[in-house]
Computed example of a mutant assay.
Amino acid sequence: MKRLGFIFLCAIVGAVSSYYAQPFVDQNSDVILIIITVFTVFAGFLIAIITIIGDPGLIPSGSWRIAEGRRNQMYQRLSWHVVLFTLYLLTIALLFVSVILEKALCEHQFWRLWIERAYLFVGITSFLFTFALPSALMEMQQARYDAEIERRRSEVGIRPDEES
């Protein structure tokens, strides 16, 4: 429920911001260059994170059932990162469409206006989603450490409900 509220809030802020920011972005090549640069860096960084976190070598040892359970859990967590990556690429794609069609749509202000609002909406919303990324990564690392600690404790015969 908390995540759904965060998504809804980001989408509302993205929609309102894109509506009011569009006049300041209209045919502003500096803003377009900054947005493309930022989202390209975000996309590259996120691919690196997905690759590192999804590395099967980081699965703690144990039975295949434990590994399978952790795989499904990791897949669910990483699916949000894949959605975020897709939104970054969609922002860049909409920007390219906007730049390419700028000359063709000079007579059709309506379409240019909505393409600009669309890339601003997706860009602002996905940028706001990015603020949740550090805590999600920290949770994943915490779960890994907890699993490793439990594995080491079980190696020396300490049950999960016992204190050292």
Rank of each mutant, 00 (worst) to 15 (best):
M1V: 13
M1C: 13
K2Q: 15
R3L: 15
L4V: 10
G5E: 15
F6G: 04
F6I: 13
F6V: 14
I7F: 15
C10S: 12
S17N: 00
Y19M: 06
A21L: 10
A21F: 11
F24W: 07
V25F: 15
D30H: 14
V31G: 03
I32L: 07
I32P: 01
T37G: 14
V41H: 07
F42T: 01
A43S: 14
I47E: 03
I49V: 15
G54D: 09
D55Q: 09
D55G: 04
G57E: 02
G57S: 04
I59V: 12
P60M: 09
P60S: 10
S61E: 10
W64Q: 13
I66P: 03
G69K: 09
R70F: 01
R71T: 01
Q73V: 00
Q73H: 10
Q76M: 13
L78I: 00
V82E: 00
V82K: 02
L84S: 04
L84N: 04
L84V: 01
L84T: 03
L87C: 07
L89S: 01
L90D: 01
L90F: 03
A93N: 00
F96C: 06
S98T: 04
L101F: 03
K103L: 06
L105R: 02
C106G: 03
H108R: 06
Q109P: 05
F110T: 02
W114F: 11
W114Q: 10
W114R: 08
E116A: 03
R117N: 12
A118Y: 04
A118G: 00
Y119V: 07
F121K: 08
F121N: 05
F127K: 07
F127I: 05
L128W: 11
L128Y: 08
F129C: 10
F131C: 11
P134N: 15
A136R: 12
E139M: 13
Q141I: 05
Q142L: 13
A143G: 10
D146H: 08
D146C: 00
A147D: 09
R152N: 08
S154Q: 15
V156S: 03
R159P: 01
P160V: 11
D161V: 04
E162S: 04
E163I: 09
S164D: 15
